[in-house]
Design a protein around this nucleic acid. Structure first.
Lengths: 254, 254
DNA sequence: CGGGGTCTTGAGGTGTTTCAACGTCGGTGG
DNA sequence: CCACCGACGTTGAAACACCTCAAGACCCCG
């Protein structure tokens, strides 16, 4: 079965186009990428640490996390992938997984063969650049997380995560109040934020009390974007630096 | 001036060859990369946040750090680059810097024009892959740092850093005691580790007392590699996953 | 011989963890 | 239809790792 959905690659192409200029031929080539669709249940591993994979995983729906684990079993997520993200595009050049990929909610995955991706990159240099750039953008996000971990408090860090996800989902700016589905437990939020489940709970309560944002029943509502952005010291520059259509001088939000 | 040193690109090529197979023609092409050599003093910025750069920075000597900063001025390093590392190879595809690059010690930098790098990548697909792979390896290191920040204690984290650097310098395994130059202040070590300078001091004292390792006058000595590796939960798999000459089934150290 | 940067040590404060108990909700079987 | 159960959420109290502030020692360089 190659592509049961109508146009599963559309969101992936959209993501690429956010940072890379591709002409119509190149876009058409991306849209023709074949793959196998798989439904993955919550908390199911998609790729395990050390696996040698032959496919990259495109997230069609749901939330996918990449994490590592220590001896005791405590986990820390290094990345989160949403609809349209190729969660392990990097596996094309490093097939042996250095971390585990897991579905944080029920998810739909399109497994795209490395061979097809390589062929595309070889044929169209602009696509090769786009893939490379995609990995670099993910790295920039991870660098921001690293900063977050050490420099921001639990409250600030939590707000920052929710703002980042809102931004990446494309539902930021302008229209308020912003809200979106984020079906994940507090325990797992803790693994994203480097906090215990218990403290995540206290943190969410504080953010709700101060009318910054609200997280309930797998739904995030950003009550006051300005207040949240200030608390989180959120500057989307790291998400937008690769934007090729960016109108030049733009950084701190107004 | 193009290349005053005898063979400044040799260590960079060596780094690429650790993870990518390149034939003689490709290797020769890398060695011919032109660039401008610059001496950079301690604590001098090489690239500033937001800069649009046209060159990538190859570290010929010294230590270079990539960091971000919050409003208060506290800093967190997201990466460290040693001799042979192209510190911002990613700038080829994302020229606008999302973090600052600074010399942590006196350093020598070779500025390589993006144009030359792109030409090479376009001409030799294997080189394009190698560059992409290089960025992915750096990302894997950053992911490990992220894990370190949240899962490991100050002692463990510090040991982990010194082991990683030893490994990356290629002076690991077998011969003990291992020692190498690492000319950096405790304050700046704190920015690498996400600790205050004061606590770095206490941490180093503890590690010295327990005869794990020693850091004095810009020199690291790993007194007991096994003990250090155990304390740090250090597994070099994340550094070796991309190794194309790896003898297959290898992960946890014995 | 003074001075600035770095290292060292102490005492007290704070954010987060740990442990533990209890509440709530949705599902499942009697 | 109610009793039960497990997963998840909520709250409290105490412990702990690390931070902050502060003072003094060391040491190289001018």
């Amino acid at each position: 079965m190659t592509n049961s959905e109508p146009a599963p690659l559309r969101p992936f192409l959209a993501r690429l186009l956010r940072h890379s200029a591709l002409d119509e031929v190149e876009q058409a080539a991306i849209m023709k990428l074949p793959g196998i669709v798989a439904e993955v249940g919550t908390h199911r591993d998609i790729v395990r640490l050390g696996d040698k994979v032959k496919h990259a995983c495109l997230v069609l729906s749901g939330i996918v996390g990449r994490f590592s684990q220590d001896r005791v079993g405590r986990r820390q997520m290094a990345a989160i992938h949403l609809r349209g993200d190729m969660a392990d595009l990097h596996s094309v050049v490093v097939p042996q997984a250095t971390s585990t990929l897991q579905a944080l909610s029920a998810a739909t995955i399109l497994h795209v063969p490395h061979g097809e991706i390589v062929t595309l990159a070889r044929t169209y240099p602009a696509i090769a650049d786009a893939f490379w750039r995609d990995c670099v953008v993910d790295a920039a996000i991870m660098a921001e997380w690293l900063t977050s971990m050490s420099l921001r408090s639990a409250n600030s860090r939590t707000a920052h995560l929710f703002l980042e996800v809102a931004w990446r989902l494309g539902i930021a700016a302008g229209e308020r109040p912003v809200s979106y589905d984020f079906p994940i437990t507090q325990e797992r939020l803790g693994e994203l934020l480097g906090l215990t489940g218990v403290h995540v709970n206290r943190t969410l309560k504080a953010l709700r009390t101060h009318e910054v944002l609200d997280f309930h029943h797998g739904k995030v509502s950003i009550i006051d974007w300005e207040k949240a952005a200030q608390l989180a010291d959120f500057d989307p520059a790291y998400l937008e630096a690769a934007s090729h259509r960016l109108p030049a001088g733009r950084s701190r939000r107004g």
